[in-house]
Design a protein around this nucleic acid. Sequence first.
RNA 1: CGGGGUGUAGCUCAGUAUGGUUAGAGUACCUGGUUUGGGACCAGGGGGCCGAAGGUUCGAGUCCUUUCACCCCGACCA
Length: 566
Amino acid sequence: MRRSRAFIPTTKEAPSDASLASHIYLSRAGFISQVASGLYSYMPLAKRVIKKIENIINEEMAKAGAEEVELSFVTPATLWQESGRIEKFGKELLRFRDRKENLFVLGPTHEEMMVDMVRNRITSYKQLPINLYQIKTKFRDEARPRFGLMRGREFIMKDGYSFHSCVADMDREFDAMEAAYKTILTRLGLDFRIVEADSGAIGGSGSKELMVLAGSGEDTIAVCSKCEYGANVEAAKRSGRAAIPEAPVAEFNKFKTPNIKSIEDLENFFKVDGYYTMKCVAKRAVYEDDSEIVLFFVRGCDTLQEVKAQNATGALDIVDVSEEELRELGLIPGFIGPLEQGCAKHVIDSDLRDAKSMICGANEEEYHFVNVDMSVMSEAYYADIAAVNEGDSCPHCNGTLSFTKGIEVGHIFKLGTTYSAALKAEFLDENGKAQPFVMGTYGMGVSRLVAAVIEQHHDEQGCIWTKATTPYMVNIMISNIKEVSQVEIGEELYAKLQAAHVEVMLDDRKERFGFKMNDAELIGFPYTIIIGKELENGLVQIFERKTKESISVSKDDVFSKIIDLI
RNA sequence: CGGGGUGUAGCUCAGUAUGGUUAGAGUACCUGGUUUGGGACCAGGGGGCCGAAGGUUCGAGUCCUUUCACCCCGACCA
C-alpha cells in the first residue's frame, strides 16, 4: 500500500476521555473511530489486524477439528424465552420488533442459536462429538461501556460450542480447546495465563479464563510463585497461610467489651491477632421471588469475597443491608456472632471449621465471647467465602500466591446440559434413550484482543505490533520525496517486497523526515526501512520498532536482510 | 441503575461568574514560496445554526426550563 493513497488518519492528540494506552494509540494512529458510546468503526489498519487474528484462530480451530459456521446476528426472542435468559440478561439484550411486531434480540452470545441449529439434526450418539464455532459481531447493551475496544457494546467474538454424548468426552474436548487457545495466544505473541474462574450464573462444572497480563486489566488474578496455578480472585483457593500467629490463652467466657465493635478494636482490646477474631458481614441475598438476610462469617484478617458468597447462597444477587434492617431482626451490629443466634441464616468460611481460641460477638450489646471452639458448630453451613490474600499458600504446591492484573480475552466453560435440557435438544444413546447433549462453550474476544496486544506492547511513542498481529510488516520510508534516487530505490524495494508477499507500506508522502518517523512509530510497524541521506554512500537503515534501534545495510543487501528479520 | 462532569471549527480547548461590534487560539486542511534525518518556517485562505427545543430580553455562546448525547466514579458485566 502506498501511504499517500492510504486512509490512515493519524492525529497528534488523543480523544480527551481516553485513558488506556490501547484506546489512545488505536485512536491516534487511525485504527478506530468512535461512533457512539461503546460503538467503534474499524478503519483499514484495524481491519487488517482483526483479519490476522481471525486467521490464526481459524487455523487453530481447523487443526482442532472444529468447523466454522455463521449464525444470524438477529435472533428471535422466543429462543431466549425458552432458555430463560431473556430475564437473566435483562437490559443487556437489545430488543426490537420487526414490521410484523415479532420480538427479536441482537445476539450477545449464541448458545441458544447454536443449540437450535443442532437440535433435531444431530439425533444419534453416532454423530457426536461435534464442535462448531463462528467469529461474529456481538451486541451487549452494557451499562457502562469504556476503555475503547476493551469494553464496547458491539464487539467481535469467536464463540464455539461443542456437543457430546457424555461428560468424559466433553472434558476431553475442553482440554483440547484449552490447548488450542493456548497456541493461539502464543502465536499472537502475548504473555498470558490460563486461570480458574467463577462459572457464575451460567453454571456448569468448571470454567477457565484466558488472561492477558497487563497492569490495566480489569480483573485481579492470583498466581502461584512456583507452579502453574492461577485463578481469578473471584474463584481463587488457598491451602492455608504462611504463618499462624500464636493463639491467645483464655477460658471460654462472655467478656464485657464496651463500644468495641470493629475487628481493629478487638485486636487492640484483647491484644490478639485478627486471625483469632471473627468478622460478620451481613448481606441481603436476593432470589427470584424473595430475599433474606444472610450473615457471612470470616476470620478478622480475611475479607469476604462477594462472588463466592453469592455462589454459596445460590442467590441471584447479594446487596448491602442497613443497621436498621439488622436490628429489626434482633441483631446487634458490632456484636454479631454465630453462637446462640437463630435470627438469620449464616454461612461460615471453611477456614473457620473447628477453629479454636476464637473471639466473636455474643449477640448482646457490649459483649463478646472469648476462647470459642468452633467445633461446637460442626453442623453449621461452611463454604469457601473468604478472599485469598497475597502471601497465602498455593492450593497445589508450597508456593505463595501473589496478585496481578489481567485482561480477560477468553473464557471456556464446561456447560453440561444446561442449555440442551432447557431447549430440549436431545439425541438417542446406545440404549435408544433420549439424552440432552453435554456441551462445552469456548469464547474469545477478537476485538478485545486487538486492544490487549497494545496494552501489552506499547511505549510513549505508540503501538508496537507483534509480528503476528501487525497490519503491515515493513514500512519503507522515503526520507525526501524530491530526491529521485531515494524514490527509485524505494519503489524498487517496494515492488520486490510485494512480489515476495511481504505486507509492505511505502511512505511516499511529501512530508519531512521527523513527521514520517513519528507517524511510523505511532502506528507501530515492526520494521521501517529508511531511505535517506546515507543513500549517497549506498546505505539504507532498518529501524526496529520494538528496540528503536537501527542498523545500516547496503542498499543491495537490504532485501535479503529484511526477509531474514521478518 | 445511583452520584458527578462536559457539549463552542475535523481534533484539543479558551470565552459563559457580571448578556452587548463581525465568536477566538493551537492544531489539522487548501494555495504559493523557502525547507528536507525527529511532528519545520513565511505569506495568504476556507471552515461554526456555540448539542437540540422552548422561554426571558431591545439584544443570548453567556440567564431560565425541558431534552438529547458523550465522559468519569460506583453498581453491573454468559
